[in-house]
Amino acid sequence: HNGKLCKLKGIAPLQLGKCNITGWLLGNPECDSLLPARSWSYIVETPNSENGACYPGDLIDYEELREQLSSVSSLERFEIFPKESSWPNHTFNGVTVSCSHRGKSSFYRNLLWLTKKGDSYPKLTNSYVNNKGKEVLVLWGVHHPSSSDEQQSLYSNGNAYVSVASSNYNRRFTPEIAARPKVRDQHGRMNYYWTLLEPGDTIIFEATGNLIAPWYAFALSRGFESGIITSNASMHECNTKCQTPQGAINSNLPFQNIHPVTIGECPKYVRSTKLRMVTGLRNIPSIQYRGLFGAIAGFIEGGWTGMIDGWYGYHHQNEQGSGYAADQKSTQNAINGITNKVNSVIEKMNTQFTAVGKEFNNLEKRMENLNKKVDDGFLDIWTYNAELLVLLENERTLDFHDLNVKNLYEKVKSQLKNNAKEIGNGCFEFYHKCDNECMESVRNGTYDYPKYSEESKLNREKIDGVKLESMGVYQILAIYSTVASSLVLLVSLGAISFWMCSNGSLQCRICI
C-alpha cells in the first residue's frame, strides 16, 4: 500500500475532517465546509473527530445509520420544511452556546429548535410527501429539559409530546424532565432520530412541544462500492481501485494482509504473511546465498510486491572476458508455465471484495464479540484455502523447474562428451581453451567436438587428477538461474548478450 488516501476510480472521497457522521448530518456549525458535499467514492472519518452533536445527546440507531450510509455515493440536500413558512405559530430561531460559531450562539444547520411564540405553543402538524424518486433521509430531535421551569419557559406545556409517523415508522416521544450533570454547559439533553422515507411515502410530524424540527433532508443515491473508513492518512493526487484505512492498494494479487476493511475492488484479506509461490528452483544453499535460486511470486499485497520470474541462460568467462545470454527457448517455456500457473491461482482465488467494518453500540458488546468470532472463522478458512492451494502448486513448480534445468544440462553434456569433466555440482571442467566463438557454439548447439578432442585428450593426460582450476583450465557451469522482474525479464530476452569482463582471468566458464 502507499499510505495515502486516493480517488477511487477517479472519484474523490468525502473527508469529514474534524467532524464525524453525526456532526455532518445534523449540521454542526463547525462542519459548515461539508454542506456543499454532493457525491463521493467513500467517506473518511478520523479516529478522534471532535465535532459531532454540539448540544449533548445521542443519535439513536447511529450504527444502523452508518451502515445505511456505507452504500450511499451521492445525496441532494434540500429544504424539507421551509423555515419561514412551515411554522407560522412558533418561534424557530432557537440557539445555544453549546453550538457556538465564530463566538456567537448558533444551532444545527439542518434542524430548527421550535419554541413557544408569545406565551403559547399551539399543537403543530406538518407533513412531507417524498417526490424525489429515491429514498429521503429525514432527521429530527426531541429536547429533554433539566427542570419543569425550563419546560414551561420554552414550550408552555408541561405534558408535551412529539409524534412522527410514516408508512414504515411510527413513534411517540415524551420529554424526560430530570436533573443531569452539566455537559457542554447544558443540564438538558437532546436525542436525535432518523428514518428513511421511501419514494411516494408521507411523513407526518405532530407536537405540542420539545420538537427539534427537520429543516433540511437528504435524497440518497446508492453506490455499492462506497463505504466509510476511519483513517488518519492524508489525501493525495492519486487514483486506485482499492482503498484501505492504511493506504491505497493497486494490485491484481488475490490476497492482502494490510487491513480487513477495504473499499472498492480489493484482494481478499488473509492473516498469512508467507503466502508465496515459487518460480525458481529448489533451494541450493551456495546459490541461494548469491540470490540466484528460489525466486518467488508473492500473492499477498503487503507481504511480497508483485511476481518475480526466474529465467535460464548461459554465463561464460574466458580470456576475452565474461558474458550472459538467455536461453530463449527454455526461458519462454518457463515463463509460459509460470504465467499459466499464476493465472490459474488468481482465477481460482481472485474475487474482488469490498469489506466494511460493522458498528455496534456499547450495549451490543456481546453481539460485536460474536460477530468478530464469526469473521475470524471465515478469515481462517480463507487463509487455509489460500495456503493449501499455493503449497500444492509450489511442489509442481519445483518439479517443473528441475526438468527444465536438467534438459539444459543434458544438452551441454551431450555436446562436450569427454572434452570436459562433470564435477558433480552442476559444473563441467573443460580440457581445452574455449574462446567466445567456442562458447557461442555450446550455447547454440553447434559445438565442434572433433575440433577440440585432441587438445582435450592431451590435457587429460597431463592433469592426472590435479585440480583443474589450479592448472588454468576452464570450467563450464551447467545450471544457472538469475532473477529478474517481469519487465526486466522481457528486456533481457530482447538482448543477445551483455558482457562482464574479468581482467586477466584465465578461467573459461559457460553457465546455464
Rank of each mutant, 00 (worst) to 15 (best):
S231R: 02
S234R: 12
E237V: 06
N239V: 12
T240S: 14
K241N: 14
G247Q: 09
G247I: 06
A248C: 03
N252V: 03
P254K: 06
I258S: 04
E265Y: 01
R271S: 06
L281D: 06
I284Q: 09
I284H: 12
G291M: 03
G294S: 13
A295N: 07
I296W: 03
G298L: 05
G303Y: 05
T305Q: 04
M307R: 01
H316F: 14
E319H: 04
Q328L: 11
Q328H: 15
A334P: 09
I335A: 05
N336L: 11
T339N: 13
N340T: 15
S344C: 15
K348M: 13
F353I: 11
F353R: 10
E359N: 05
E359P: 00
N361L: 00
N362L: 13
E368C: 07
N371K: 10
D375V: 07
L379H: 13
A386Q: 02
L388N: 06
L388K: 06
L392I: 14
L392H: 03
E393W: 10
E395T: 15
R396K: 11
L398D: 01
L403N: 14
L403M: 15
N404S: 06
L408H: 08
L408E: 08
Y409C: 05
K411G: 13
K417C: 04
N419F: 03
E422M: 06
I423D: 08
I423T: 10
E429A: 05
E437I: 13
E440V: 07
E440L: 06
S441F: 11
V442L: 00
P450L: 12
E454P: 09
E454A: 14
E455C: 08
E461N: 14
K462A: 11
D464I: 08
V466Q: 11
V466S: 03
K467H: 15
Y474C: 08
I476E: 01
S481N: 08
T482Y: 00
V483A: 12
A484Y: 03
L487E: 02
V488L: 10
V491P: 06
W499A: 10
N503S: 14
S505G: 01
R509C: 03
R509G: 05
C511P: 06
I512M: 13
